[in-house]
């Protein structure tokens, strides 16, 4: 019970961080049909901007300023880059964002160095908030949960309860019709791209000091974010939310549960010995393949339900 509760909290924190990162991407992906490889780079930029800004004016202004900066960069990328490349089809867009991710990584290395920067949790949130069976739950984790929950609610409200949200939703499925009705669809695209990038930046601000702020953080986070987006389904914020939490919990619980396939087979009455074929693979404990599980799920869902969990369109 103790392990279960603490792991549940750990999984929630990680899952919500994933959600913050992938919610922007899912909107961008479903609207423009482009897997934006540079999305995790915005996450990295957010962390680095926050680090630099917090050196001068502290963490709280950085919490606002860094995502805004990321959003501006996102808007510029969309207006001056993606929109031109868009004419040449999806492959060109894909390669464009891929190149961008590499360029951003190099720029970060040149600006902030190859070594991790000392971006720390603000002193005001650096204390144990409460304790579950003797394990402290840090205030900063609670803060991360709070921010991401607020974000989920506000995006959901904005998308479903405001005019802008309606237009965005309409542009997702019927861009020509929305254009014909006199709305500036390219501007909606820019808005969504900038918004998505800003969200990734926000995730970087609060994820960078929770984890480590270093130049390889974008490439470390990139693949799992794609898994979340594809698994959750295109254009579905709820799907993305469920997928994020699921991946967070799976990865956390995989570490805690010390079982292997061999244990499972034993329950079914089959005992694995060293002479059984694939004994090595079958007896690998779950914690050692935990990081792999999301990708296994990705492959499975693409085989069984290509639209993802709650997707309404094909990939």
């Amino acid at each position: 019970m103790e392990v279960f509760l603490v792991s549940l909290l750990n999984g929630l924190v990680y899952g919500m961080l994933l959600f913050m990162l992938s919610s922007g991407l899912t909107l961008i992906f479903s609207m423009m049909g482009v897997l934006n490889f540079a999305h995790a780079s915005a996450y990295m930029l957010g962390a680095y901007f926050a680090f630099t800004i917090s050196l001068y004016v502290g963490f709280w202004p950085a919490l606002i300023l860094a995502p805004l900066l990321c959003g501006l960069i996102g808007a510029a990328i969309e207006m001056y880059g993606l929109r031109r490349v868009h004419k040449n089809g999806h492959i060109a867009e894909l390669l464009f964002t891929f190149g961008l991710a590499l360029i951003i990584e190099k720029c970060v290395q040149m600006t902030w160095g190859l070594v991790a920067v000392p971006y720390r949790v603000p002193a005001g949130l650096d204390f144990p908030l409460f304790s579950v069976y003797g394990t402290n739950f840090h205030a900063y984790r609670a803060f991360m949960l709070l921010i991401s929950a607020l974000m989920f609610v506000s995006i959901w409200l904005a998308l479903t309860r405001t005019r802008v949200g309606l237009i965005i939703q309409a542009s997702l499925t019927h861009p020509e019709m929305v254009g014909a009705l006199g709305h500036n669809v390219p501007r909606v695209f820019t808005l969504v791209f900038a918004g998505g990038t800003a969200l990734a930046g926000l995730a970087g601000v609060i994820g960078g000091n929770y984890q480590v702020t270093e130049p390889s953080m974008a490439f470390a986070m990139g693949p799992i974010v794609f898994v979340v987006v594809v698994f959750g389904g295109l254009g579905s914020l709820t799907g993305c939310f469920i997928a994020s939490l699921l991946m967070g919990l799976i990865q956390t619980f995989a570490i805690v549960l010390d079982y292997s396939l061999a244990d499972l087979l034993k329950q079914l009455g089959i005992t694995i010995t060293s002479s059984t074929p694939f004994a090595e693979v079958l007896s690998v404990p779950l914690p050692r393949i935990g990081a792999l599980l999301p990708y296994i799920l990705l492959v499975l869902i693409l085989l069984v339900k290509p639209r993802g969990l709650m997707g309404t369109r094909d990939t």
């Binding site: 603490v6 750990n10 999984g11 929770y210 805690v256």
Partner: peptide
């Protein structure tokens, strides 16, 4: 990047 599950 996060050792909390191991600590648990």
């Amino acid at each position: 990047k996060d050792f909390s599950p191991y600590v648990t």
